[in-house]
Design a binder for these strands. Structure first.
Lengths: 139, 139
DNA sequence: ACAAAACGGTTGCAAATGCAACTTGTTGTG
DNA sequence: CACAACAAGTTGCATTTGCAACCGTTTTGT
């Protein structure tokens, strides 16, 4: 089963990679950070880590790169000075919208490949699995 | 959806990793190669690549490491001199059996977490997705 | 029959990754 | 209030990775 799910995951990744990578020169993690920042408006690196289940060093470097590209802006935290609050720049918002479009198109394509009901089923099962595993590993 | 499946895949990987990694010092790819070689008795690197959908350089290095550990044996091809045929050593077979046990136990655990029917469903959907994606990307 | 293309496998190298140590700032406890 | 434990984020370093170039071998087209 690990085999199975990994293969499916890799295939999915590889299939969508061209969009953000060849199209905009972003790494997978960079795109994720961009997407999450876009969805949450203002968010800390830490929360991105929690949401995306990513290493904090990975996120940190992705953020640096995105800031260097002028896609994301950091604003030192108001209350807690350790926290760097992240927001999209205008340019970042544009890119987020643009890739977001493609992402939705891709999702739609997947859905049409599997059929809508099976697609929904799969989503269900995956989240279930994820949750089950998370509580299996007490960390 | 890419998010979803990747998270689930990573969670699954992380949950089983300790067995081969902490227990036997194998990388994920090494374990895969060992498993596939065990299942097919005698197989070439190339076929492992095809079956596991892995990079050939990754497989090559994993094989080298396994040979160095005395788990796998290479025998230069008979007909085609390019091919290196891989077989498990006695030690390799033992390890394969041993980890295989744990793998089955892990699979059983997953199955009990999801319920047998949902588990089967998930397998179905994952292979479907994988197939669909493979033909979506003409390569 | 022979040059060109293709193939199995290895290797070099730049980039990505994981982990732990570290910096700076916060919180809790005596 | 001081001091230890802890948290956010960064960075250094060893290892892994992906990609492309490469070597010897086989197949293909003409």
């Amino acid at each position: 089963m690990p085999f199975l799910i990994n293969q499916a995951a890799e295939a999915t990744s590889k299939a969508f990679q061209p969009v953000y990578r060849d199209g905009y020169g972003l790494s997978r993690t960079q795109w994720r950070v961009l997407a999450i920042t876009g969805r949450y408006q203002a968010i800390s690196s830490r929360d991105i880590c929690l949401i995306a289940h990513e290493e904090k060093s990975r996120v940190s470097r992705a953020v640096s790169a995105l800031v260097a590209e002028g896609l994301i802006e950091k604003s030192g935290g108001e209350v807690d000075k350790r926290i760097e609050l992240l927001t999209l720049s205008a340019k970042g918002r544009d890119l987020y919208q643009e890739i977001g479009q493609s992402a939705q198109a891709f999702d739609a394509k997947l859905q049409s490949l599997l059929g809508p009901d099976r697609d929904a089923q799969l989503r269900d099962l995956l989240t279930d699995l994820h949750v089950a595993l998370d509580q299996l590993t007490p960390k």
